[in-house]
Design a protein around this nucleic acid. Sequence first.
DNA 1: TAGGATTTGTACTGAACGGTACATAACCTG
DNA 2: CAGGTTATGTACCGTTCAGTACAAATCCTA
Lengths: 191, 191
Amino acid sequence: MVRRIAERGDVIPALAETFREHGFAGASLSEITKRTGLGKGSLYHFFPNGKEEMAQAVLDDVAGWFETNVFMPLRESEDPAAGIDHMFKAVVRFFHSGRRVCLVGTFALDDTRDRFASEIQSYFAAWTRVLAAALKSRGFDTRAARETAEDVVAGIQGALVLARAHDDSALFMRAIKRLHQRTMGVHRDRA
Amino acid sequence: MVRRIAERGDVIPALAETFREHGFAGASLSEITKRTGLGKGSLYHFFPNGKEEMAQAVLDDVAGWFETNVFMPLRESEDPAAGIDHMFKAVVRFFHSGRRVCLVGTFALDDTRDRFASEIQSYFAAWTRVLAAALKSRGFDTRAARETAEDVVAGIQGALVLARAHDDSALFMRAIKRLHQRTMGVHRDRA
DNA sequence: TAGGATTTGTACTGAACGGTACATAACCTG
DNA sequence: CAGGTTATGTACCGTTCAGTACAAATCCTA
């Protein structure tokens, strides 16, 4: 009994990666024990409600990360452009340049959504709301700010799907660049 | 033994809906028998290779639908604007105004992708390629056509994620309208 | 209408599933 | 260093899983 002096928080990254790769239904306990290095005993010690509580903890962790690394800078930057810049950098980092999928997006698509409806909704709602506010500070009118924010958040999700479909992180990076440009309010259509 | 004179093709819509709702891993045979109304005997008679073959059949069916209802009109319309218009109408119809998710997108996100990598890749590649060609006919230069096509396909996928996250098909419809406008090559940023 | 080819329901298999029980070992505090 | 708390490994539970076997019912063709 090696006793890895593990804390609950230590396993969350491994849990997150497992759910990302297999989805909620596809992430079996045996896979989870393999990835976390913890036996069932420890797992159920930290998460008495099993997989559901593990996924909940991961969602909380993701929400916290975005709050700290995306939403807060977006809200509190003196220069809204700098906040938006920061957001795109954080997003690229978080999603490993498109090689990593969005766990919340994954959960949103199948019936896993029903288990975590409010967490999933909050994640996207907060993101869209905070980004829209930053765009307003940048001079977008209320409606354009709202629409562009929705387009950007959706565009990121869609780019993650395509990047993974093509196994091509360059696709993701290109999409990010174009979305970033759209937040700068420059006319750049080339029709 | 009621003998529903079933043909293989008859069950594909039910199969598709089951995979859409539960994902590949989450779609159990018992759920599939329930939704299709066919027992295991019939199911394995039509699809000797089980779930994998069922999913393959569904992917083929989706590919066929898009070929007929999206790609072909996009390629063969005299007026490329009409072809694009047709595409958006077909997409809204296919995805039930955003209440139905994209099966291929669902498969793309988790490890199901690895089983059907080429089908998933082809789906998005074909869509992007054909749309880019139509945009070129509309006067977009090669690069802008390619980029806009990628943005539109990704934008649709992302809008499906957000619409499902918020259980809000109006969100999807708004996104579609904006994406449609971007294919018209009009400068419309409101910064 | 006989007889082979299809289609179907049911019973079954072994493996894997999520989850529980619990004894044991390591840790921490006094 | 004693005693309680916190982790941990393992064995086990009942259930569900994907898939198989096969006989019976239906259809189709000659």
